[in-house]
Each structure stands twice: as structure tokens, then as C-alpha cells.
Write a protein that binds this DNA or RNA. Structure first.
Length: 492
RNA sequence: GGGCCGUUAGCUCAAUGGUAGAGCAGAUCCCUCUUAAGGAUAAGGUUGGAGGUUCGAGUCCUCUACGGCCCA
């Protein structure tokens, strides 16, 4: 434990004094009849200096105190907002008032009293009785500037939430966004399911997994990088429409847009293809934007994003042509491709295929320009081992990714349901893995067995929830939309 | 992994290489419509850590920890 400062010691002394006076500083419960927002709703009409005889009871944390001799104004904060209280010696009596004066900012109290409106027009509770509900031993951050230090804000999110009112708003939006998606999918008869987080094979995406160990079984398990292969097993099983909202884990770097654990919604719809999934994707995101912001325009990091109407749709090669200025629609030789990449300062290895290099050009030169919602379609087969080929074109799959604010937000395809083709693709992946590509996928025999039982045609979609929340809350860093982002451990 | 920036009182921030300061919070006192309440007094620091240069280091150098931003 760090060294105790003067303020901590002061509060410890007050705590001891309270106990000596038989005041319980941590009582078991308190029944409130109101919260701050309901008080505003019910009594907001009160004119200046008017009062209402209704007795209200509410609880909250003392955020500010203005002590004036025999009377004190304070502000309480609860989950719904802040409300002013007014405590007067002549109303609560000498002993109680003396006790009130020993309270500190940060203490949690319950109050009972009547609502009135001050001369300056602020709705206030005239306290008749108060109860200490929890003594705070640590001081609050600066009341005007709040808690600014980014490291402390992430490490001690509880202090961040107490001191900076707008932080909770982000997480209310997050909750609302997820509820909206659930509601829409439930209306469409999707079944919400839970599939393993610990998997014997980490499949469904190109990413490095975390490894853990099960002692009783004495086997290594991977934290999942995606739920895809399990959800599609459920499609084989006949559930037809399933979705899961949960964490994925990827053992990669941490940045403003990557957290090792992040939240995805994945959904699969039997008998649909990627075009239908594209409509569903747009419907979901549009509804979330509308529900959370009230409009279809969003200000994101200096750009005005419009979610109204149809969203731009282009193929990968069209996007590379338009935004990187290089035309791969007319076929190029490998030599030409490498020269173009070199000219664009895009790095590649000798083992990279042509499409791999084009994809890298896309990632480096195009993604950052995809600010407005844009569907990129028709990905190369070799980079999409779980997606179904476009009709009559073995090089291209029916797949799209959605980009918003220069970030990949969603990924979807018509799911590959040909078990023999899938085996071939997984064997190719395995070869790449053996050549040292750590992100190439593993061969999952049980998944192939499932496909051999017959999976209906199916469209699948994954949406990165954290990034979606970043967009609708105009957050620059993924850490601002994750309550407890991953940090290097501190020395406490 | 590389580059740049940051780390000073509980919090928010100052301080040409020359006595580490302010506001808020805390303490004591005054104050019954304040709201960043006000007034008075006193107190609060191993300047992230370890070395080095210097008569003298918060400031310059090296290493290191943590964080931020950018690049890979």
C-alpha cells in the first residue's frame, strides 16, 4: 500500500470518531424513494422559492459542499445525475448538524426532505434527516477539472466514473447499442447463444491466440479468436438463425484501436447470402446510430459521417484503384505487382502471393481513406478460407467488409458449406502455417465432420462492438469505450 | 520493435542550471440562498526510480519503470 497522506489520516480519524459516537459508517441498506432525475421530472415545475410538501428520500455521493456557518449546500451524485441539497442547523438540530459538518466530499449519504426551488432557481432538497451510508477514506479529484491523468483514468476507472460525469454516458450508450441489436435480432427470430471461449483449436479468424491450460484434462486450450466455427455448427444443427455477443481474444499489440480482448457480435442466417447479410448489417448499425444519437449523422474525429440512405459499395480492386491509384482490375504480373508495392512503400515478403500484396496495399493505402460507411466486396479466396466462391469465379469469394471512420467495423460472407472445398482450403491454410504464417488457420476435423452432415446455404456477419461504440461516441481510443482496458500492471 | 512527448503536493497545473510555487482538496476560525460560494490563518514535496555531469539539477546526460501519440 502506498504511503498514507494527511487527508487519508484525517478521514481515518473521523471514521474512528464516528464509531466512538456509535454511528455506523457502513450500514447495510437504505431505501430511497427517488433519484435525482425523478426529482427533476416530478418537481421541475416549481417556481423560485416555491416548495412541495412531498417527502423524498434519495441517496448519493457528496460531490461538493458549500458550508456557511449554520447552513450548508451540497451536491449529491447518483446514477441518474446530480441534485443539490440544503442542510440547516435549525432544521436538523444541533447534534445532527455537528455530525453533518464532519462529512467529507466523497462520502455517500442518504437524505430525506422536501423539494424546493432556491432564489436562484435551482431545485434543491431541504434536508430533514440524513444518514451516512459509506465513509470515503480517499479524497476526490479536483472538483472543477475532474480527473485528467489518462493512466489513472484507465487504471482506476471507479475514480474516473465518480469524477467525470461524461464517462458513464459512453457506457450507457454502449449498453443501449447492444440492447438495440438484441432487440432487432430477437424480432427477426434469431436465437442468442453462447459458444466456448476456451477452444482446443483457435479457428474462425486469422490471429494469434492466447494459450491456457486445463489441469484436470491436462490439455492446452486456446482463448477463442472468433466464435465462427461453433456458430456454424449450430447452423448445421438446424438452429437456422443464431447470434452471440461476447469477447474475442487476440494475442497481438495494443493500440488506440486494439485491445487484447474485444467484443464482437457474430450472427449466422441460414438460406441467406452475403447480400442479405449486408442489408441486415446496415439495418443493425443504422438502428444503433439512430437509437443512440437520435440522428443518422455522426461527428467522428473531425469528420461528419452520414448513415442515411444507401452506403457506398465497391470491390476491393475498385477501392485500390480509386484510393491507391493503382489498377489491378486489368491483370498484372507478379513482377509488376511487386514494383507497384515498392513504389507505394508497401512491404512484402517473397512468400507473399499477388493477392496478399494487393491486400497489404489496401490495408496501408486505402483503409485510412474509407471514412464514410463503405462496403468493400469481393475478396480473394486465398485470404478468405471460410467464405464461398462467387458463382463461376474460384479466385473471388462472396465477402464484404464494412469500413467506417477509416476502421474495419464488420466482416461478412456467404459461408462456405462444401465440405470437400472447405477441407482443401483448410489444408492450404495448414501448409501456410507450416511455412511459418502464425495467423494461418488450423485444420478443424470436427468442423469438417459437421459440414459433411450438410450446412444449409448461410450468410454470416461479425461486427466489432467496441469500434462501433467509438464511432457513435466520437471516441479516439478503444480504451475510452472499454471500462477496464488492458494495461501493464502497476506497482501498487 | 523504432521515434517523439509526458511523469512535480491527494487532484489540476507553474517554475532561464541558482531558496520548488499557485488553485482546488485537507486543517483551524468567521459566515443561514450557495452553486468552481466567500473571507482569514497555518500546514502540506525523496520533483516516477537509479546513476552521472556541475560549485549547484525538477531543469543537462545515461539507464530504467509507467503512460500517451505516431510509425512498423
Amino acid at each position: 500500500m502506498e504511503e498514507l497522506n494527511d487527508q487519508y489520516l484525517q478521514r481515518r480519524k473521523k471514521l474512528d470518531d464516528l464509531k466512538a459516537q456509535n454511528v455506523d459508517p457502513y450500514p447495510n441498506k437504505f431505501v430511497a424513494t427517488f433519484n435525482s432525475v425523478r426529482i427533476r421530472q416530478q418537481f421541475g415545475h416549481l417556481q423560485q422559492e416555491a416548495e412541495d410538501p412531498t417527502v423524498v428520500v434519495l441517496a448519493g455521493r457528496i460531490m461538493t459542499m458549500r458550508l456557511m456557518g449554520k447552513a450548508c449546500f451540497a451536491n449529491l451524485k447518483d446514477a441518474s445525475g446530480r441534485i443539490q441539497i440544503y442542510v440547516r442547523k435549525d432544521k436538523i438540530g444541533e447534534t445532527e448538524y455537528a455530525l453533518f459538518k464532519t462529512l467529507d466530499m466523497g462520502d455517500i449519504i442518504g437524505v430525506e426532505g422536501m423539494v424546493f426551488c432556491t432564489r436562484t432557481g435551482e431545485l434543491t432538497i431541504m434536508v430533514q434527516k440524513f444518514t451516512l451510508l459509506s465513509k470515503a477514506l480517499r479524497p476526490l479529484p479536483e472538483k472543477w477539472h475532474g480527473l485528467k491523468d489518462i493512466e489513472t483514468r484507465y487504471r482506476q476507472r471507479y475514480v474516473d466514473l465518480i469524477a467525470n460525469d461524461e464517462v458513464a454516458d459512453i457506457f450507457r450508450v454502449r449498453s443501449k447499442a447492444i440492447k438495440t441489436m438484441r432487440r432487432i435480432l430477437d424480432e427477426k427470430d434469431f436465437l442468442e447463444v453462447e459458444t466456448p471461449m476456451m477452444q482446443p483449436l483457435a479457428g474462425g479468424a486469422a490471429a494469434k491466440p492466447f494459450i491456457t491450460h486445463h489441469n484436470a484434462l491436462d490439455i492446452d486450450l486456446y482463448l477463442r479468436i472468433a466464435p465462427e466455427l461453433y456458430l456454424k455448427r449450430l447452423i448445421v444443427g438446424g438452429l437456422e438463425r443464431v447470434y452471440e455477443i461476447n469477447r474475442n481474444f487476440r494475442n497481438e499489440g495494443i493500440s488506440t484501436r486494439h485491445n487484447p480482448e474485444f467484443t464482437m457480435i457474430e450472427l449466422y442466417q441460414a438460406y441467406a447470402d452475403y447480400n442479405q447479410v449486408m442489408d441486415l448489417c446496415r439495418e443493425l448499425i443504422t438502428a444503433v446510430v439512430k437509437e443512440c444519437t437520435g440522428k443518422l449523422e455522426v461527428e467522428y474525429q473531425g469528420n461528419n459521417l452520414s448513415f442515411d440512405g444507401d452506403w457506398k459499395r465497391m470491390t476491393l480492386l475498385e477501392a485500390v484503384k480509386e484510393y491507391a491509384g493503382v489498377d489491378f482490375i486489368t491483370p498484372k504480373t507478379m513482377g509488376e505487382t511487386k514494383k507497384i508495392a515498392t513504389d507505394l512503400n508497401v512491404q512484402f515478403t517473397d512468400q507473399d502471393t499477388q493477392y496478399k500484396i494487393i491486400n497489404t496495399i489496401f490495408e496501408e493505402c486505402v483503409e485510412k481513406k474509407l471514412v464514410q460507411p463503405t462496403f468493400i466486396c469481393d475478396y480473394p479466396t486465398e485470404l478468405s478460407p471460410l467464405a464461398k466462391n462467387a458463382k463461376g469465379n474460384p479466385d473471388i469469394v462472396e465477402r464484404f467488409e464494412l469500413f467506417i471512420g477509416a476502421q474495419e467495423l464488420a466482416n461478412a460472407y456467404s459461408e462456405l458449406n462444401d465440405p470437400l472445398e472447405q477441407r482443401k482450403r483448410m489444408e492450404q491454410q495448414l501448409k501456410q502455417r507450416e511455412r511459418g504464417d502464425e495467423e494461418a488457420q488450423m485444420l478443424d476435423e470436427d468442423y469438417l465432420r459437421a459440414l459433411e452432415h450438410g450446412m444449409p446455404p448461410c450468410g454470416g456477419l461479425g461486427i466489432g462492438i467496441d469500434r462501433l461504440i467509438m464511432v457513435i461516441t466520437n471516441s479516439a481510443s478503444i480504451r475510452d469505450v472499454i471500462l477496464f482496458p488492458q494495461m501493464r500492471p502497476e506497482n501498487v
